[in-house]
Computed example of a mutant assay.
Amino acid sequence: MLVVTVNHGNLKVRPARFDDICEAVLMLVSLIPIGKVSSYSDIGRLLGAHPRLVAQCLMRNENPVVIPCHRVVHKNGGLGGYSFGGAMIKAKILRIEEALGDSDKLGVPKNAFFRLGELLGSAR
Protein backbone atom coordinates (compact mmCIF):
# COMPACT_ATOMS: atom_id res chain seq x y z
CA MET A 1 0.00 0.00 0.00
CA LEU A 2 1.24 3.46 -0.87
CA VAL A 3 0.35 6.78 0.71
CA VAL A 4 0.00 9.78 -1.57
CA THR A 5 -0.04 13.29 -0.15
CA VAL A 6 -0.34 16.65 -1.84
CA ASN A 7 1.09 19.70 -0.12
CA HIS A 8 1.06 23.08 -1.92
CA GLY A 9 0.88 21.34 -5.28
CA ASN A 10 3.73 18.92 -4.51
CA LEU A 11 2.90 15.24 -4.84
CA LYS A 12 4.65 12.88 -2.44
CA VAL A 13 4.41 9.07 -2.52
CA ARG A 14 5.73 6.80 0.21
CA PRO A 15 5.20 3.26 1.44
CA ALA A 16 2.45 2.94 4.03
CA ARG A 17 3.45 2.73 7.66
CA PHE A 18 1.66 0.65 10.28
CA ASP A 19 -0.38 3.66 11.43
CA ASP A 20 -1.49 4.35 7.84
CA ILE A 21 -2.67 0.77 7.41
CA CYS A 22 -4.51 0.90 10.74
CA GLU A 23 -6.25 4.11 9.73
CA ALA A 24 -7.42 2.43 6.52
CA VAL A 25 -8.56 -0.69 8.42
CA LEU A 26 -10.60 1.38 10.86
CA MET A 27 -12.20 3.38 8.05
CA LEU A 28 -13.23 0.17 6.28
CA VAL A 29 -14.61 -1.35 9.47
CA SER A 30 -16.73 1.74 10.05
CA LEU A 31 -18.53 0.93 6.75
CA ILE A 32 -19.82 -2.47 7.94
CA PRO A 33 -23.54 -2.08 8.65
CA ILE A 34 -25.32 -3.28 11.77
CA GLY A 35 -26.27 -6.95 11.44
CA LYS A 36 -23.42 -7.70 9.05
CA VAL A 37 -19.79 -8.74 9.43
CA SER A 38 -16.65 -8.78 7.33
CA SER A 39 -13.58 -10.95 7.67
CA TYR A 40 -10.00 -10.15 8.57
CA SER A 41 -9.09 -11.74 5.22
CA ASP A 42 -11.52 -9.62 3.20
CA ILE A 43 -10.20 -6.40 4.73
CA GLY A 44 -6.61 -7.55 4.34
CA ARG A 45 -7.19 -8.41 0.67
CA LEU A 46 -8.57 -4.93 -0.02
CA LEU A 47 -5.52 -3.30 1.55
CA GLY A 48 -2.88 -5.77 0.42
CA ALA A 49 -2.20 -6.61 4.07
CA HIS A 50 -2.05 -9.87 6.02
CA PRO A 51 -5.20 -10.68 8.04
CA ARG A 52 -3.10 -10.76 11.23
CA LEU A 53 -2.05 -7.17 10.57
CA VAL A 54 -5.74 -6.28 10.31
CA ALA A 55 -6.30 -7.94 13.71
CA GLN A 56 -3.39 -6.01 15.22
CA CYS A 57 -4.90 -2.76 14.00
CA LEU A 58 -8.28 -3.65 15.47
CA MET A 59 -6.67 -4.39 18.84
CA ARG A 60 -5.59 -0.72 18.85
CA ASN A 61 -9.11 0.59 18.21
CA GLU A 62 -9.62 3.16 20.96
CA ASN A 63 -13.29 3.79 20.18
CA PRO A 64 -15.17 0.51 19.65
CA VAL A 65 -18.55 2.24 19.97
CA VAL A 66 -17.86 4.35 16.86
CA ILE A 67 -15.63 1.88 14.99
CA PRO A 68 -17.35 -1.51 15.37
CA CYS A 69 -14.40 -3.89 15.38
CA HIS A 70 -16.69 -6.60 16.80
CA ARG A 71 -18.07 -6.91 13.25
CA VAL A 72 -14.81 -8.43 11.96
CA VAL A 73 -14.59 -12.23 12.17
CA HIS A 74 -12.71 -15.14 10.62
CA LYS A 75 -13.62 -15.98 7.03
CA ASN A 76 -15.00 -19.36 8.18
CA GLY A 77 -17.46 -17.63 10.52
CA GLY A 78 -15.43 -18.08 13.70
CA LEU A 79 -15.55 -15.05 15.95
CA GLY A 80 -11.87 -14.42 16.58
CA GLY A 81 -10.76 -12.27 19.47
CA TYR A 82 -12.16 -9.11 20.96
CA SER A 83 -10.06 -6.72 23.02
CA PHE A 84 -13.05 -5.24 24.82
CA GLY A 85 -14.21 -8.23 26.84
CA GLY A 86 -13.36 -11.34 24.84
CA ALA A 87 -15.20 -13.52 22.35
CA MET A 88 -18.28 -13.99 24.56
CA ILE A 89 -18.89 -10.23 24.66
CA LYS A 90 -18.30 -10.07 20.90
CA ALA A 91 -20.88 -12.82 20.45
CA LYS A 92 -23.40 -10.99 22.66
CA ILE A 93 -23.02 -7.78 20.67
CA LEU A 94 -23.34 -9.63 17.34
CA ARG A 95 -26.41 -11.43 18.64
CA ILE A 96 -27.99 -8.10 19.64
CA GLU A 97 -27.21 -6.79 16.15
CA GLU A 98 -28.74 -9.99 14.70
CA ALA A 99 -25.56 -11.07 12.92
CA LEU A 100 -25.46 -14.38 14.86
CA GLY A 101 -29.13 -15.19 15.06
CA ASP A 102 -30.65 -17.08 17.98
CA SER A 103 -28.59 -20.26 17.89
CA ASP A 104 -26.19 -21.22 20.65
CA LYS A 105 -23.54 -21.79 18.02
CA LEU A 106 -20.79 -19.16 18.04
CA GLY A 107 -20.30 -19.07 14.27
CA VAL A 108 -21.51 -16.35 11.95
CA PRO A 109 -23.77 -17.58 9.11
CA LYS A 110 -22.64 -16.88 5.54
CA ASN A 111 -25.61 -14.57 4.87
CA ALA A 112 -24.31 -12.17 7.54
CA PHE A 113 -21.11 -11.45 5.61
CA PHE A 114 -20.84 -8.04 3.97
CA ARG A 115 -18.43 -7.73 1.06
CA LEU A 116 -16.61 -4.42 1.48
CA GLY A 117 -14.97 -4.87 -1.93
CA GLU A 118 -18.36 -4.86 -3.63
CA LEU A 119 -19.33 -1.68 -1.80
CA LEU A 120 -16.10 -0.04 -2.92
CA GLY A 121 -16.25 -1.39 -6.46
CA SER A 122 -13.04 -3.37 -6.00
CA ALA A 123 -12.22 -6.42 -8.11
CA ARG A 124 -9.86 -7.68 -5.39
Rank of each mutant, 00 (worst) to 15 (best):
P68A: 15
A87D: 05
P64E: 01
A55G: 10
I93V: 09
Y82H: 05
P64L: 02
Y82N: 03
I96S: 14
V73Y: 03
E97S: 03
L79K: 08
R71E: 04
P51A: 02
I93F: 07
S83T: 12
K90R: 08
V65G: 07
E62F: 12
I89R: 15
L94Y: 14
L58S: 01
V73M: 07
C57E: 06
K90E: 08
G77F: 00
G86F: 14
L79F: 12
E97K: 03
L79G: 08
F84Y: 15
G86V: 11
L79Y: 13
P68W: 06
K90L: 07
R95M: 13
L79C: 12
M88R: 15
R95Y: 14
L94G: 04
V72F: 00
V66T: 12
K92S: 07
R60V: 08
R95C: 07
N63G: 12
K90Q: 09
Q56W: 09
L58W: 00
G78H: 14
A87T: 08
V73W: 04
M59H: 13
N76Q: 02
L94I: 11
L53Y: 08
Q56Y: 12
V73T: 06
S83Y: 02
V72E: 08
C57H: 05
G81F: 00
L53M: 11
K90G: 05
G77A: 03
